[in-house]
Design a protein around this nucleic acid. Sequence first.
DNA 1: TATATTTGACCGAT
DNA 2: ATCGGTCAAATATA
Length: 300
Amino acid sequence: MEMNSPHEKAVQAIMYGHRCALRLKVRLDDPMADNGSVSTYDLAKSIVSCFSDAISILSDKPKSEDDQFSDLSSRDSSPPPTPQRNQSKKRKINHSGTNSSENWRDDSPAPIYYDGFLWRKYGQKSIKKSVHQRSYYRCSYNIDHDCGARKHEQKIKDNPPVYRTTYFGHHTCKTTHNQDHLFTAVQDQVDDLESARMIRFGEDLVQDKESHTRGFSLSAKHEEDTIKEETMDQCRVITGDDQDCQHVMEENQSSPSGSYTPPSSSGSESVMCDSDLLVDNLASWDFYNQFDLDCARFFS
DNA sequence: TATATTTGACCGAT
DNA sequence: ATCGGTCAAATATA
């Protein structure tokens, strides 16, 4: 099963947000039950971002479904990375001296926090034409799998913010190992917390995830943190107030934004893939809904 | 201590 | 000489 249609992406975004919301609720119900590795603010921000994503995807349907995503992937053997989770405009670019079929540009209102691949930052430069610096990333499997994929990311516009990510080369690494660690990891955290609660309701959704023994870091998270600090700095200049910055940033946020720090995992031997995640989620979706109703009744 | 990021140096292209 | 991309030592982080 492929995870390509906008509908499926929207469903995933909503499910991700739902998991974050569940965790937030768990924490609000019983602050001691949570290990506190993720701040309440970050959880809330993730929830807002996920719904923004879903809304963006669904409201974009009339024009983008046919000509942008499907068309480009079917025409080219090296499509942009999937799953794509931000509202963005993808464009093939011509770059003299390189194979243009392997280069992609992606503009989005927020830094891409997860594009299906793991990246390692290897440089950052001031660019003549822009006040914003450009960050350089290469595939985290650059050495392990001799993967030559790279990307640049740069904020190219303020108000509304536009972040341009340009992809170069194609991934020769095993993408099933590269993709979906974030979702897997996030789901692990939420599942752990949910398991504890669901037992109270006589249910047992504990699943063998194997992921807590793995260790990896998400460049995208740090990438986002950098941008976040830059944005905060800009806000401070204007408002001189950190709380205002938080509000402004929250309103401008339109992607899950990496605020949710996943647990460590080495990822290199993960076998979790799209279909696993989707089936798993769909299987528990009805239960989650019922669980919400039960909780609402129980705590009201 | 291992791994990732930061940041000035280096280098090729123009 | 300047610019943009990459390297790699220093630094940060878990």
